[in-house]
């Protein structure tokens, strides 16, 4: 379980807070997508959660332990892959890295060996376990970083852009792992990514942060359902777009995309098109995906 209470971080060199009074509760066994545009404060929040950055105010508790005041206990509950860093030693082999990080976590050698064998086999790296990580592809290096984060079976896993640079197969493996971690082992997973398809697929909850503030924290389904009133409709008509409508014409067919605030407005649109004498080919409701919802949330005017 992750509990974040009124977390704030103000860097001395910046006037505005990077994270502003953020509160978030993630129940055990859930997978939460922590989203936001670049510079929104995601990495700052994750580093405070991991105890790598001291908050200006507020508190983070991992599995009931305060990250600042009960650091050793809190750190036994966490594994993390941090974005934009190597996470593991490139001068060492995959096996040596897992042995090293396992020992740092306080594990016994025999247990590390068993766990490392399982992880490397699962990620398809067993045959290359003795090769230096520096010689691996970006995707393989990321796999080793994920394996190192999971070596001690932590109950809480923070994954900052875990699928960046991974191929389709590896991305699928990571997604399956995340689902298994949460579903079978009860691991709490917090994931940040710009690949919103991954979030939609694996996260049962989504939190969106903008300018350091939390602007949404809902179950994924609820977040998507809450945006239905902003559904889009795609209308295809023969010939050019009638006056008052914008569309893209191709091969004599114009596609008009409109957003409506209420389903009843669709009938009005059709009436207006009929009044212009256009021939309607099709009318399709386009359900918003997470990308639409995310963009809508981060583009809304900021509240004072």
């Amino acid at each position: 379980m992750i509990e974040i209470n009124a977390l704030t971080k103000v860097y001395a060199t910046a006037g505005l807070p990077a994270v502003d009074n953020l509160s978030l509760h993630v129940p055990a066994g859930s997978v939460i997508g922590f989203l936001g545009p670049n510079g929104a404060g995601k990495t700052t929040t994750i580093k405070m959660m991991a105890g790598l950055l001291t908050p200006t105010s507020g508190q983070v508790r991992l599995g009931g332990f305060d990250v600042t005041r009960q650091r050793p206990a809190a750190m036994t509950r966490i594994g993390a892959v941090l974005e934009g860093s190597r996470n593991v030693y490139w001068s060492l082999s995959a096996w040596q890295n897992l042995m090293y990080f396992g020992r740092l976590k306080g594990m016994r050698r025999a247990r590390i060996k068993d766990r490392a064998r399982d992880l490397l086999t699962e990620l398809g790296l067993w045959e290359r376990r003795d090769d230096k990580v520096g010689g691996f592809s970006r995707g393989m290096q990321q796999k080793v970083a994920i394996a190192a984060a999971l070596i001690a079976d932590p109950p809480i896993v923070l994954l900052d852009e875990p699928t960046l640079g991974l191929d389709v197969e590896a991305t699928r493996t990571i997604k399956r792992w995340i689902a298994e971690l949460a579903g079978e082992l009860g691991t709490t997973v917090l994931i940040t990514t710009h690949q919103l398809g991954v979030v939609e697929e694996v996260c049962d909850r989504v939190a969106v942060i903008r300018q350091g503030r939390l602007v949404a924290d809902l179950p994924t389904r609820e977040l998507l359902a809450g945006s239905r009133e902003r559904d889009r409709y795609e209308i295809r008509v023969e010939g050019a777009a009638p006056p008052g409508f914008d569309g893209v014409t191709r091969d004599g067919v114009t596609t008009i995309t409109l957003r409506v605030d209420a389903p009843g407005e669709v009938y009005d649109l059709v009436e207006r098109l009929r009044a212009h004498g256009v021939v309607l080919q099709s009318l399709t409701q386009v359900r918003p995906d997470l990308e639409d919802v995310f963009l809508a949330l981060i583009q809304e005017p900021a509240h004072a």
């Binding site: 790598l52 050793p72 036994t76 594994g79 993390a80 860093s85 490139w90 306080g106």
Partner: peptide
């Protein structure tokens, strides 16, 4: 390289 941060994620 960011590896130092990983060494801080331990008890």
């Amino acid at each position: 390289s960011g590896v130092l941060e990983q060494t801080y994620l331990t008890p």
